[in-house]
Write a protein that binds this DNA or RNA. Sequence first.
DNA 1: AGAAGGAATGACAACGCTGTCATTTGACTC
DNA 2: GAGTCAAATGACAGCGTTGTCATTCCTTCT
Lengths: 342, 342
Amino acid sequence: MSATIKSVAEHAGVSIKTVSRVINNEGTVKPDTLAKVQAAIDELNYKPNKAARDLAGRDNYVLGYVYDNPNAYYIIDMQKGILNECRANGYELLIHPCDASSRDIIQEILGMVDSARLAGLILSPPLSEMPEVLSALDDKGVRYVRILSGSEALENSPPCVLVNDFQAAYQITEHLIQQGHRDIGFIAGEKQHNSTIERQKGFAAALAAHDLPQHPEFVIEGTYSFGTGVESIEKLLTLPKKPSAVFACNDEIAAGALFGARMRGVDVPETLAIAGFENSPFSRQTFPPLTTASQPTDQIAQRATSTLIQSLKARKLGNDKQTIPAHVFVPELVVRESTNRS
Amino acid sequence: MSATIKSVAEHAGVSIKTVSRVINNEGTVKPDTLAKVQAAIDELNYKPNKAARDLAGRDNYVLGYVYDNPNAYYIIDMQKGILNECRANGYELLIHPCDASSRDIIQEILGMVDSARLAGLILSPPLSEMPEVLSALDDKGVRYVRILSGSEALENSPPCVLVNDFQAAYQITEHLIQQGHRDIGFIAGEKQHNSTIERQKGFAAALAAHDLPQHPEFVIEGTYSFGTGVESIEKLLTLPKKPSAVFACNDEIAAGALFGARMRGVDVPETLAIAGFENSPFSRQTFPPLTTASQPTDQIAQRATSTLIQSLKARKLGNDKQTIPAHVFVPELVVRESTNRS
DNA sequence: AGAAGGAATGACAACGCTGTCATTTGACTC
DNA sequence: GAGTCAAATGACAGCGTTGTCATTCCTTCT
C-alpha cells in the first residue's frame, strides 16, 4: 500500500541505507544526496514503518504514560503536553491508566513495557512517588522521567521535573493573610502525596512568617475530592471558633467547600474566603470563581517528555552518567472573587 | 532481555510455528501440546513482541482514537472504555487529539494511520460526523467505527454505535413539563453537531406532544461551553416574557446558566429550573446539583471498540460484507435539585 | 494390513527497517 | 600524479514474528 524505504531508494537512485540515514538525521549524507532523497520521500509520501524500525533498531520510538489520577482535566493536559513533544520528535505515545493501589501494579507496568517495547515511561503522581515502582523500573533498566512535588532534585537521581508546591502554597496563604485573614483553615488531599505535604508546609511557613498561630483544629485531612470539600467545611464551620478563610489543597476540594458553605447559607467571600489550587477549568466556573494557583500542566508534561527523550539520546550516545538538571515550575497565584472581599 | 518465541519453542520442545499458533488461538493445536506450550510461556513469562507481529502479520494490533473535543471528562471516559476492550483483546491504543477545523485534518489522520499501521480507528463526534473525513477513510480502505447521535443506522453503513439523544432530550423536557413548566428555554450547542440537532428535536417533540407552544425566542444558539450558558441565560432573563425552566444541551452550558442566574440573583430551582445533559461529574458538583441525562460514555466506547474489533475479524475471515448491527444507547434521566421544586 | 485423507506440526521465506562493516569517493598532501 | 585518509555510500545479515506450503501423524475405512 504505502511506499517502502526500498521504493524511495530506487526512486532516488541511492541505497536503502542512505535513505535510512536521511530518515534518522544521521548527518553523514551529502547535501545534494539528501535533497534527492527528500524529494523522493515527499513525492512518494513515504512514512517509515514503525514496526520495522522498532524491530530492527535498538531503540523503539514509543513512550508510555502511566497514571492513576481521577482528575480528568489534569490527565488531558498531561496527554496534550506529552503528545506535543512526542510528535515533534517522532515518538508515539501509549497511555496506560491504572490503579496504583492494585497489588500487582508493578507486574502490570513491567508487562506493558515489555510487550510494547517501550523506550521510556512518563510517571506522574502518585506513581512517580512510589519507591517500589521506581526501584522495579530501575532493576529492569527501564528509563523514565518523573513529575513530582519539590524544589530540588536529589543528587544522581533519574531525570525529573519538579513543581514547587511549597512556594505556591506559601503565596496563596500570604494572599489570604494580606486580605486580612488571621484564622485560616487548611483542607488536605491524600496525606501520603508529596503535593499535599508540600502545600501544607508552604501554608504553615506563611503563617509562621507572619507570626500567626497554627490552629491544629483548622487542618482537615481528606482526599483530593469534591466530597472532602463538602465534609471538611462542615467540620470547620461547626467549630466554636471558625476560620474566616480556607485554603483547599486543590480546586475540586475548594469547589466542594464552596458547595458546603452555600448549603449552610454562608456567603463567599464575604463571610468565608476560599482558595483552591491547580487552576483547573472549573475553578473559573464556580460561583464565585476560585482564587487558585495556576499549574501549567501541559508545559510541565512537555518538559518532562523532552527531558526523557534527551536522556534516551544520552544513553544511546553512551554518556549515560550525565545527569540532566531538573526543571522547576512554580505555580502562579491567580486571584479571583472567592477571596476578594473588596 | 525478554523471552522470545524461539526460547519458548525450545523450552516446550515444539516448533516456533506451533507456539505462534498457541499465541494466536488458531485452535489447531492438540490439547496436550497446547498445555506444554502454555506452561513454557508462563514459566518464561513470555510476551509476544508487538513490533515483530505487526511487521510479519497482515494485521496490526493497534487501534487509534482520533478526537477533537474540549470536554475532558468525556475524553477520559472514552479512553477508559476503549482501553478496557483493547486490553481484553490484546490491542494497543494510540490516541490522537486534533483540531477538526484544521485545513489538513484529513492528511493528518491518514498520515497517522499510515505511519503507525493502525488496524482501525474509533471516531467520536464531531469527527464521526464529517463526511469528508469518512469518505477519505473509505477511499483508503481504513476501517473505523463511529459513535454518533441517532436511533437507526443507515443501510450498509460502516459499523457504528448510536446514542439516542432525541429520546433522552424528550424525557428531560417531559420531566420539566411534569414539574409544571410551560415556558421552557433551550440552549443549543454547536448547531452543526448531530447531538444538538437531535436534542433540539426531542425538546420540540415533547413540547408538541403536550400541546405547548414553541417559543422561537426561547431557543438560544451557542456552543458546548460554560460561556454560552452564562450569555444565554442573560438573554433569556431579559426577555419580556421569561421562561421558568431551561434545558441546556450539556452540563457545561447548564453550569454556565446556573452561574448566570446566580449573578442576576435568580434562585434555582425556585424561580428558574435548569437541566443539563451528560451526567458529567460536575453536574453533581454545582449548587444545586443538576438534573441531567446520564450517558454511559465508557460503555459506549467499549461497545464501539468491540464492534470495531469484530468488524476487523470479519474482514480477516473474508466475510466482509456482513453488516454489524448498530447498538443504540439511550441516556437516562437523572433528576436532581436544579429542577426539583418540591 | 494397507490406503486414504484430514489433523497436527514443522521448515523456511518474508515483513521493512537498522547495525556492522566493507567499499567507494573525493579532497588534500608531498 | 600517486598516496593518504576521512567522508560518504553500499551490501548484507538479522530483528521476532506470521504466512505458505510441505511434511508427519493419526484415524478411519476397505
